[in-house]
Design a protein around this nucleic acid. Structure first.
Length: 997
RNA sequence: GCCGGAGUGGCGGAAUUGGUAGACGCGCACGACUCAAAAUCGUGUAUCGCAAGGUGUGAGAGUUCGAUUCUCUCCUCCGGCACCA
């Protein structure tokens, strides 16, 4: 037996595969295509740790299987080398970013090569290569030169918009070019604007929302480096991604992505359907509010403006307390600048005294407040406050003592006493009194004589009485107890629907709970007639809180008595206290009330337009020119790429100006000085792999048509709101403009789990816990590393690295090696005619069965990215092989084929040893024989009363009665069934028998 | 706080249209080989019990002949969002 020298064979085959171009992808091909893509890395200076290749190994195993299954597999790799990480590294190490990137790519490639991936390296892309970013710039120009046609619901060239203006707008032609351009800028999908941005002074650049994280004190810091971030108003380039918000949301449904990534994108897009409603005010200026709960319009008790509301000035100057308000606004802005949105911040606000808003639904005058719990950037920057049905308004109203009005109530139907057909529904407002005697710890109830009812005191509200008055009156009338202390109203009313036999109607009762405490047991005279219907009964606290009573609202009152405060009722329900809208559901009322007040239903999104500019050197130049008059012009396609100038000083200026603004040759030409953000180059790289060398287009139409989209995309879930959203956006744009054939770029997405250090922390230089894959490859071999990383646990789960456990994977490969040295020409019973061979060598029959089970298992598991169980089943097979005397060459080779994706080097070496002349990685994927998977006999469990008491062996197709009979004669089973009457027999085919005695 | 996901031996994990819980691997113990050690091989390894048998998948309840799997309540951990009206 020759030695297993992993270094030797791994180097040998890596060289051979490269020389023979084993992984070269045909383009085009008659074979069916399959595109397996890894998220390409930032080639950071630190190099790879063992966590990085996890995803690459998974996708490589998958790609290798697909290739063996006869697909033309596109499995490329490249580098995303623009952007902050590369540039920070360069600045820290005082070398030019281009040099740093070159060096890092080399390190990176060296590390990758050792692991034995099946990439077609001839297709490598590098975002910093001018031949690549020429096309990034080209796509930018297409976006800049387009607008979103809301009627066609897709992007169109801006020239179509100009034509439209020329036709429909008489004034258009009179405008100067600059004026026209100003208007067009409001439509372009890439546009220039001023806005508050997240400015990071330390990095000297603007950051996108998803590049900012909270530090442990809740302050915003840059994801990279952890530097403080503040707000700053600056000139920026933007991408109008919000135009695509709805399509980005709805198209998620058709994607085979893990649920939580879709969820994150859904949240990020943040769609909400609501209404815009206008409130007139006592000054000559209306307030437009956005609300999702127009059904609560009757419950509005005040209106709130954001301190940064666009018209705040006009309200301010007319307020009687102008100084106070203006001071509040100043403070609020100060707070916003620091952006320390600390958790559970107490709400603050100030009333605009002397100004009233008029509720359009009922003409009611309500106060107007300014408060910074209302965001200027969402909706209309103003809200109608309904403290009874909104948690934030509730909190605010409580603090400033603003009134509450209930307009929505939960509706319950009394199932014991449901409304009856043929009876009229009669609505009544009622009060229900909970009376507590603190001395005896008892509650007041009524025991009804005629109906077997047991309830608390309740009754209708009469005339102009308040709820509390009505409740008190009822208690006195019905029980005589008059010394009552009002404690509180038990939250929003509750609607109950039931049949009232004594009145001959179906009752719709809108009840409000009122809590009283009994001050003394003093009683006044009772109304005799009424009192004859029931007895007064005091029940213990325990009974009151546990026993159901006739009035079904009781659980609500109990719930709301528990805490000192109760939550506002924020769910949908049935409308009350709203005139003609009463008894509608919230859903119906939202539309009807909006319509009634002349508002309109609108859809809003949380997502903002994406900032598309960085004040940094190391990025794609934006291919635009500014002339002296301020007009912007696009570079012509033939002048692309606009190359980054070679400079010696590329550090950030710190003023907010890009380093390029200091380059004379650059500014002289009027070139835009901002560069593109890191996500530009990564938003379309997967398309370039399809045709990486093309000089005439980002990719040839034929190549695009053949490869279409990515079938399997593997990468980290941290890109959920960045790369994965931006790519979808660009792809949809390119689709609208006819440049790509599909509206979505990535059909299936798998997210690999992170590999943590053995101490449970992230691997990082900082903690000194980094494991370098080079070391593992050197000691154990690439095949062992690959098998181990796939065997560790589920692909999508994170696990700590455990060098101790690797040995198991190594032993597995060594066992394969050992078994290989024992194979012989033993003839295998594998053809279908021998599906049920009557072999003397039972051991061998069993092995062949295991082999075919394993083929199926490995096949299915790889398809599902369940690599750990695939390996586990191969271990079972190899353990069995190790024990049998005869192993046929054919069967062993079949096994090598399913092992090949995981351990490509060993499999190839043994494959050639067995006389093959062509790479195993181009051999066809083995098929399993279904007939061999069927067992003749089965061992099944016999349970008595659900407990396993014995095991019997039965023919696979045995009849149920035969199985029962067989089971009953089993010794162990007899012990439990003898002398017992068998009440029930259950047979689960091929699984178990259960006797119930 | 809200929205997701998860909780199984000493450890990583396996098993869910409800059907023998703990596959596979690590570790550990004992044995073989060895002067000895390593490596390797064999046996064992959820837990209580000498055994028969009992208990056991975060806790508690429920449905069922039968629950890691379904329902409800609660606890813990991880991820996302965080005044989005």
């Amino acid at each position: 037996m020759k030695n297993y020298d992993h270094s030797k064979i791994e180097k040998k085959w890596q060289k051979a595969w490269d020389a023979k171009k084993v992984y070269k992808t045909e383009n085009p091909s008659k074979k069916k295509k399959f595109y397996v893509l890894d998220m390409f890395p930032y080639p950071s200076g630190a190099g790879l740790h063992v966590g990085h290749p996890r995803g690459y190994i998974g996708s490589d195993v998958y790609a290798r299987m697909k290739r063996m299954q006869g697909y033309n597999v596109l499995h490329p790799m490249g580098y995303d080398a623009f952007g902050l990480p590369a540039e920070q590294y360069a600045i820290e190490h005082k070398i030019h970013p281009r040099k740093a990137v070159e060096k890092n790519i080399k390190t990176f490639r060296g590390q990758l090569d050792k692991i034995g991936f099946s990439y077609d390296w001839s297709r490598q892309v590098n975002t910093t290569d001018p031949e690549y970013y020429k096309w990034t710039q080209w796509i930018f120009l297409q976006i800049y030169n387009s607008y979103y046609d809301t009627e066609k619901n897709k992007a169109r060239p801006i020239s179509e918009l100009i034509k439209k203006f020329e036709k429909t707008d008489k004034n258009w032609k009179k405008l100067s070019e600059i004026e026209k351009e100003k208007i067009l800028m409001q439509y372009r999908l890439a546009y220039e604007g001023y806005s508050e941005v997240n400015w990071c002074p330390k990095l000297g650049t603007v950051l996108a929302n998803d590049e900012i994280v909270d530090d442990k004190d809740g302050n915003p810091v840059s994801e990279r480096g952890g530097y403080p971030v503040e707000k700053k108003s600056m000139r920026q380039w933007f991408m109008r991604i919000t135009s695509y918000a709805d399509r980005l949301l709805t198209d998620l449904d058709g994607l085979d992505w893990s649920g939580h990534i879709k969820e994150i994108q859904k949240n990020w897009i943040g769609k909400s359907d609501g209404s815009e409603i206008e409130f007139k005010t006592s000054i000559n200026r209306n307030i437009q509010v956005f609300t999702t709960r127009a059904d609560t319009l009757f419950g509005v008790t005040y209106v709130v403006l954001s301190p940064e509301h666009q018209n705040i000035g006009e309200f301010l100057v007319q307020a009687k307390n102008m100084a106070e308000v203006s001071e509040y606004i100043r403070e609020a802005k100060e707070r916003a600048k620091k952006e320390d949105i600390t958790i559970e911040k107490e709400k603050t606000g100030v009333e605009l005294k002397g100004i009233k808003a008029i509720n359009p639904v009922n003409g009611e005058e309500v106060p107007v407040w300014v408060a910074d719990y209302v965001l200027a950037s969402y909706g209309t920057g103003a809200v109608m406050a309904v403290p009874a049905h909104d948690e934030r308004d509730f909190e605010f109203a409580k603090k400033y003592n603003l009134p509450m009005k209930y307009v929505v109530a939960p509706k319950i139907i009394d199932e014991k006493n449901p409304p009856k057909n043929g009876f009229e529904y009669v609505v009544r407002n009622a009060a229900q009194a909970v009376v507590y005697n603190p001395i005896k710890d008892e509650y007041l109830t009524l025991r009804w004589k005629k109906f077997d009812w047991h309830s608390i005191v309740l009754g209708g509200i009469e005339g102009n009485e308040s709820v509390v008055e009505a409740a008190k009156r009822e208690v006195i009338e019905e029980t005589g107890y008059s010394d009552l202390i009002f404690k509180k109203i038990l939250g929003s009313p509750v609607i109950s629907v039931f049949h009232a036999p004594h009145k001959g109607i179906n009752r719709v009762s809108v009840s409000t709970g009122v809590l009283f405490e009994l001050a003394s047991e003093k009683q006044v005279g009772l109304d005799r007639a009424e009192h004859e219907q029931f007895d007064v009964e005091w029940v213990s606290s325990e009974t009151f809180f546990s026993k159901p009573m006739t009035n079904i609202e009781l659980p609500f009152w109990r719930e709301r008595m528990k805490g000192k405060i109760w939550k506002p009722f924020i769910e949908y329900g049935t409308i009350i206290n709203s005139n003609e809208f009463n008894q509608l559901t919230s859903e119906e009322a939202r539309k009807k009330i909006t319509e009634f007040v002349g508002g309109k239903m609108v859809t809003k999104y949380k997502m903002r337009d994406a900032i598309f500019a960085r004040q940094r050197y190391w990025g794609e130049p934006i291919p635009l020119k500014h002339d002296k008059a301020g007009a912007i012009s696009m570079l012509k396609e033939k002048n692309l790429p606009l190359k980054l100038p070679n400079v010696t000083s590329y550090e950030p200026t710190g003023t907010g100006e890009s380093p390029l603004s200091g380059v004379k040759a650059w500014t002289k030409e009027g070139y835009e000085t901002n560069t593109m953000p890191g996500w530009a180059g990564s938003s379309w790289y997967f398309l370039r792999y399809m045709d990486p060398k093309n000089k005439k287009a980002f990719a040839d139409k034929k190549a695009l048509k053949y490869w279409k989209d990515v079938d399997m995309y593997v990468g980290g879930s941290e890109h959920a709101t960045g790369h994965l959203l931006y790519s979808r956006f660009w792809h949809k744009f390119l689709f609208d403009m006819g440049h790509v054939p599909t509206p979505e770029p990535f059909k299936t997405l798998k997210n690999q789990g992170m590999i943590l250090a053995s101490d449970g922390r992230k691997m990082s230089k900082r903690w000194g816990n980094v494991i370098n894959p080079d070391d593992i490859v050197k000691t154990y071999g690439a095949d062992t590393l690959r098998v181990y990383e796939m065997f560790m646990g589920p692909f999508e789960a994170s696990q700590p690295w455990n060098t101790e456990s690797i040995i198991g994977s190594r032993r597995f490969i060594e066992k394969v090696w050992k078994v290989a040295s024992r194979i012989n020409d033993f003839k295998s019973p594998r053809s279908s005619s021998q599906a049920r061979p009557d072999f003397k060598n039972h051991q061998y029959v069993s092995l062949v069965k295991t082999l075919h089970k394993t083929i199926k298992k490995v096949n299915d598991d790889i398809a599902n990215f369940a690599f750990n169980t695939a390996i586990s089943s191969m271990m079972v097979l190899v353990n069995e092989m190790d024990k049998v005397e005869n192993i046929s060459k054919e069967d062993f080779k079949t096994f090598l084929q399913i092992l090949a994706p995981f351990a490509p080097h060993v499999a190839e070496e043994l494959w050639y040893d067995l006389g093959e002349k062509k790479s195993i990685h181009l051999a066809p994927w083995p098929k399993y024989n279904m007939k061999l998977l069927i067992e003749d006999t089965l061992k099944i469990a016999v349970q008595v009363n659900g407990k396993v008491r014995g095991e019997i062996e039965i023919p696979t197709d045995a009849d149920q009665e035969v199985v029962f009979a067989e089971a009953l004669v089993n010794e162990n089973v007899k012990k439990w069934t003898d002398g017992q009457e068998i009440k029930k027999k259950i047979y689960v085919k091929g699984r178990l028998v259960n006797f119930v005695v």
